[in-house]
Design a protein around this nucleic acid. Structure first.
Length: 434
RNA sequence: GGAGAGGUGGCCGAGUGGUCGAAGGCGUCCGCCUGCUAAGCGGAUGUGGGGUCUAAAGCCUCACCCAGGGUUCAAAUCCCUGCCUCUCCGCCA
């Protein structure tokens, strides 16, 4: 959420940012509503003041045995007036807030202006896609033949876009999750921020306020699964509960940055994705993801964003998967984000790079919504923090990438070296016939 | 799920319906004192709006004592609902 006072002080740049984002939000409408609200609020406050004075006078005089029936009568009148104003005031406040909640974040100046994903510049590539002496199969075929992936039984259990992992497939999921968590929580060197991630396990069902805090609600409500009887929602990413761990609190500056890593299932309705990626593990209603979350100072958040993205890339490097980093342009940027890098892994069967991680700086957009502030050392006035997050990595998609990139002619799949200890020493998933 | 207790400032904790944004303590900060430290003494110390001011400070003012309703001229204080915490019972991975 943006600061309404900041908007009214200088709407120009924000208007431009909205155009760059291809967003149709009307700034004039909120600003007008805000101005009217301010006028009303002032007269309401004046009446409250009058009421407070009368109440005080009544208390004082009554104690002295004086007659106060005139003041009480007057006070009743003022109260009626206040009550009349209040419902209108409330309605207008809710309206302004509702509008502001639909206003997207402003892209950072370093974000390239562009219309859609075709305008996303590539930042760099790592690894060389392997050349196959045979036709590379898509992962769902490899997984089917190996007996480690079963979409048919998943469909019977839960419908489309669900999967069942079996045997080595399930083991691979566990190995990857454990490996990623270990990697990120390892103290390690080369961390400019000076500290490793703290692992957290969090609720998978949250209240709607949490979804609003990180920006999923109100705009993307239809994207989430809900449990209506209890008023709860299944998290679409660990970002939601982890960022909201610090909701409505003030953090001491010395404790920043706070860095968390959390491995959770994620649940998405994929409402707008009918017909896309209908096969395989790429687009599922439920998938496992290791998420990195930072709560940090405004002054360092862009450096931190680079570090976070490198942390995600480190996993791809370790696994030996070819990937590239792209920067999202203004037209492709997510609602809450001020800047986003996507990491895309090479998928040999389709011969394309596919998104496997998305690393964003939200600046104070989420912090305002969720009330996450810090107390700067030099001043005592709390300020909103900056929040960042990124996948490190999406586990389901990583399984797909490993199956495709490391498949062999005989149908077996080689396990990346770093995962072997996590696979009980197994170096490859044996071919179907063995 | 049933029965009870409770939710107050960074923390602990008091608060007969009226001058309470809230006693007291702890913590923190600033001074003083002191070979050093400790102790002691004095003072300051919630958040968010609005106004005043060139600006800061100060001052004035509105809101906030879990949340939302209600009673009342007046609510931290009374009533109702919700949420949360604790204790006991039941159930359970």
């Amino acid at each position: 959420m943006l600061d309404i006072r900041q908007i009214s002080a200088d709407p120009g740049p924000i208007q431009q940012a909205l155009r760059n984002r291809k967003d149709s939000f009307s700034l004039e409408a909120v600003l007008a509503a805000e101005r009217e609200l301010n006028v009303l609020r002032k007269s309401w406050e004046a009446l409250r003041e009058q009421r407070n004075r009368l109440a005080e006078e009544i208390g004082r005089k009554k104690k002295g045995g004086e007659d106060v029936s005139r003041q009480m009568e007057e006070s009743r009148g003022v109260n009626a007036e206040i009550a009349r104003m209040e419902s209108d005031l409330r309605k207008r406040e809710d309206d302004v807030r509702a509008q502001l909640l639909l206003l997207p974040n402003i892209p950072h100046e370093s974000v390239p202006v562009g219309a859609d994903e075709r305008d996303n510049p590539e930042i760099h590539r790592h690894g060389v896609p392997r050349s196959f002496s045979f036709e590379a199969l898509p992962h769902w075929e490899i997984g089917g033949k190996l007996g480690i992936l079963d979409f048919d039984r998943a469909a019977i259990l839960s419908g489309s876009r669900f999967s069942v992992l079996k045997g080595m497939g399930s083991r691979l999921e566990r190995a990857l999750s454990a490996y990623m968590l270990d990697r990120h929580t390892h103290p390690g060197r080369n961390r400019p921020s000076g500290k490793p991630y703290q692992e957290v396990s969090v609720p998978l069902l949250v209240r709607p306020e949490m979804m609003e805090g990180t920006g999923q609600f109100p705009k993307f409500r239809e994207e989430s699964f809900s449990v209506p009887d209890d008023g709860l929602f299944l998290i679409p990413t660990a970002e939601v509960p982890v960022t909201n761990l610090h909701r409505d609190t003030v953090i001491e500056e010395a404790d920043l940055p706070l860095k968390y890593v959390s491995c959770t299932p994620c649940f998405r309705r994929e409402a707008g994705a009918a017909g896309k990626d209908t096969r395989g593990l790429i687009r599922q209603h439920q998938f496992l993801k290791v998420e990195l979350v930072w709560i940090t100072r405004p002054e360092t958040s862009y450096d931190d964003h680079e570090e976070l993205t490198r942390d995600a890339e480190a996993i791809l490097n370790d696994l030996g998967l070819p990937y590239r980093r792209i920067a999202l342009c203004t037209g492709d940027l997510g609602f809450s984000s001020a800047k986003t890098y996507d990491l895309e892994v090479w998928m040999p069967a389709q011969k394309v790079y596919r998104e496997i991680s998305s690393c964003s700086n939200f600046e104070d957009f989420q912090a305002r919504r969720a009330g996450i502030r810090y107390r700067p050392q030099e001043s005592k006035k709390p300020r909103p923090v900056h929040t960042l997050n990124g996948s490190g990595l999406a586990v389901g998609r990583t399984i797909a990438a490993i199956l495709e990139n490391f498949q062999e002619l005989d149908g077996s799949v080689t396990i990346p070296d770093v995962l072997v200890p996590y696979m009980g020493g197994i170096q490859r998933i044996p071919p179907p016939d063995s």
